[in-house]
Each structure stands twice: as C-alpha cells, then as structure tokens.
C-alpha cells in the first residue's frame, strides 16, 4: 500500500497544485481543497495512465477514499 501511496502522492500534488499534500488511506475528497468533479476527471485519468490500468464502472463506484482507490489499483496491477 505504501508503494502505491508514494506513487500517488506526486500525482495528487500535481493535479491539485499543492506541494504540501500528504495522502493516506483515509484521505477523502473533503480533505483536499479543489477536489471537485472537474479535478476528479483529471485525477482518475492520470492514475489510469500512470499505472497503465483501466477502471471498471464497479471500481469507480467503490472509490470512497484514497484507501479504497489504492485497493482497487493493487487489484488491477496484480491481475
């Protein structure tokens, strides 16, 4: 999980234009300024490209926290 967090953190910092962001598995959209529907599109698209994965509709529906996002990314990478 920590490996993925260390890869995700720079993505979050870039998308939300904030070098002080430190995500963890409990981080939610409410914890990060500017995390709205527009930046979310960018975030998901960048994560897919970075990890070379494609989320399914069911995956996207389950993404409530960064933690749930990481679990889904781990499953995708492993499969």
């Amino acid at each position: 999980m920590n490996d993925i967090i260390s890869e995700l953190n720079p993505i979050f910092r870039k998308i939300f234009n904030n070098d002080s962001i430190e995500i963890n598995d409990t981080t939610t959209a409410g914890d990060i300024d500017g995390w709205d529907s527009l930046t979310h599109l960018d975030l998901i698209s960048t994560i897919e490209s970075h990890f070379n994965i494609k989320f399914r509709l069911k995956d996207l529906a389950k993404m409530n926290t960064v933690g749930s996002m990481i679990i889904i990314i781990q499953e995708k990478i492993a499969s």
């Binding site: 959209a29 529907s37 599109l41 960018d42 998901i44 509709l57 996207l60 529906a61 993404m63």
Partner: peptide
C-alpha cells in the same frame, strides 16, 4: 462518502474517451 458531483464524474468518466476529456473539462 464523496459528493454526488464526484460520484457522477466517476460514472460518466467510465464511458468517455480520454481524447474527449480536454474538451469536456473546458465545457465544465
């Protein structure tokens, strides 16, 4: 969980082509 706007974004994102995202972001 997240706002309804983010959930909706997630759902629509699944169906949209990456190539169309810059235009969609501009529209939003």
């Amino acid at each position: 969980g997240p706002s309804s706007g983010i959930i909706k974004s997630n759902m629509f994102f699944y169906f949209l082509s990456k190539a169309s995202l810059p235009q969609i972001e501009e529209n939003i």
